[in-house]
Nucleic acid binder design. Structure first.
Lengths: 283, 283
DNA sequence: AAGGAAGTTGTAATTTAATTACAACTTATC
DNA sequence: GATAAGTTGTAATTAAATTACAACTTCCTT
């Protein structure tokens, strides 16, 4: 949530002095981000530590961090707010909300994703002897999609959504193999095991998962997507879309790394479908 | 002007070391705003004053002020244009482009989708005796995802990505059954057959496909997503993300139609996963 | 090719800003 | 009215950023 909103919302949980600080900040937010803690303390007529405590109460690391958050919420118009579906929303309302919150999630993901790690992941993938995609539950369909992208590259690709197959496959992996483990939470025990087994067998393990999760600890490389979890419906929605976009990015990076000639190969794969399709008529 | 753009624009007026700083910042802007000058200097492998000079060159008062500007330019969601990946794009470039073009595609889809049809589809789905999701190729993973959403609703759901199974399943369908056929182009012959067979057997057929396509003609209800096809890479990317969002919308509509009590059911499904996961620790 | 000027970069010192520890003071409660 | 919980400020400490200056490049002149 936006820091400014947060201040407004928690105004009654503040102490007297903290409230003074809140008032000054709300009155001149733009000035605040260019002030030192001393200047702000003076404006609010409180001591510096009080300002610091105020910042901490809002879940920031301290005054400089608070200013950063403030600067972001001041930045002109967050285009779309993360809107939640309500009990009595009609079709127009929930359709719009889901589109918007998905777009907002992608925007967040874009800002948080670590380009260096993407680049390293692409590196590793282009050099892979074999690529395996593993996911369970909702992440299984992401793994499937990844397989559908990567098999076109003429690299051996496997994808299992069955823990027994995953396990056997992981045990059989060896140096040069790349195993991609997909899990939004990174807390699925079975998948952590798979990652560990793959690593023990010298495979490179890429995790598409939450940073700092048990799964992340088992991985050689962690691609973390900081997407606000959409718990309203008890189903992974936006988080999984972000994962798919990440797969698209990796696949794109892969093809770019391989150069123009390789691109013609992809065209061939696509053209191979022609026989199974109805001709497109011109209108 | 946005600081990030400014960096990109003035990249050739930078000295060697300043360029190193620019690269690091462009690669991980989000990290940068939470780093100290020392940390950033180390990342860029330059001295601290160099970073400071870099900030000044961009018309900021110093490093902290620069971070403020950076935070702001990261916050206001660059209005995304539909940008295409180029041959010589680096990781930053193609990552940004794919995120942005996906968001643009979703925005387009949102504007084109027909809410009435969504509403009717939700109607049909809530009353279904059995729901089947069929897709081939890239659309198979969308079908999988749909299954993963709808099985939670305690309705019989099947999903096949194998034409023989699809065919057998379609032949066995009867009134009250709903068959959802997913195909971006709507020109896959096999899937058209499936739709026709299902209809002959009195099932309701919902097509998630292009309006006016051969598949659309076989369907009772057509949910069309007019997403600019992303042919650059010869792989379906944005179009498939839009399909997934549509599935999310249908699933959400379904749960809303079923009311609050039903929602608790979903929570139970989610909670059932607890045993298979590592506990989340509080910090 | 040598010398020097302009420009670039890093080291160390200095300054500034933020945070911590602790003591004094309020406020509420019994 | 005493005491405990909570709040606030002062002073000391620590961390971060900036400045001054020296060393090193690079490029131009003679």
């Amino acid at each position: 949530m936006n820091v400014l909103e947060k201040i407004v919302n928690s105004v009654n949980s503040f102490s007297k002095s903290e409230r003074k600080v809140a008032d000054v900040i709300l009155a001149n937010p733009q000035t605040t981000i260019h002030s030192s803690i001393a200047a702000l303390a003076k404006m609010a007529d409180v001591s510096e530590p009080t300002v610091n405590r105020f910042c901490r109460r809002l879940d920031t690391k301290g005054f400089p961090d608070f200013k950063l958050h403030l600067a972001q919420s001041l930045a002109n118009g967050t285009p779309y707010v993360n809107r939640h579906v309500e009990e009595d929303d009609g079709p127009e309302a929930y359709t719009a909300k889901i589109f918007e919150s998905t777009m907002a999630a992608l925007d967040a993901a874009r800002q948080n994703v670590d380009i260096n790690t993407i680049n390293r992941a692409v590196d590793v993938l282009t050099q892979a002897k074999k690529i395996s995609f593993f996911g369970l539950g909702a992440s299984a369909s992401v793994a499937h999609d990844a397989q559908n992208k990567f098999f076109r590259f003429n690299v051996p690709v496997v994808c299992f959504d069955d823990i027994v197959m995953q396990r056997m496959s992981a045990i059989n992996s060896s140096e040069g193999d790349v195993v991609v483990c997909i899990s939004h939470t990174g807390r699925t025990k079975n998948l952590c095991d798979i990652a560990a087994i793959a690593r023990e067998n010298d495979a490179t393990v890429i995790g598409i998962t939450a940073y700092d999760s048990p799964l992340a600890k088992e991985c050689t490389l962690v691609l973390s997507l900081d997407v606000p979890e959409d718990t309203d419906m008890y189903m992974p929605m936006a988080s999984r879309v972000a994962q798919l976009v990440l797969i698209d990015i990796l696949a794109t990076g892969f093809t770019l790394r391989r150069g123009t000639k390789f691109r013609e190969n992809l065209k061939k794969v696509k053209d191979s479908l022609r026989g199974s399709r109805f001709e497109k008529k011109d209108f």
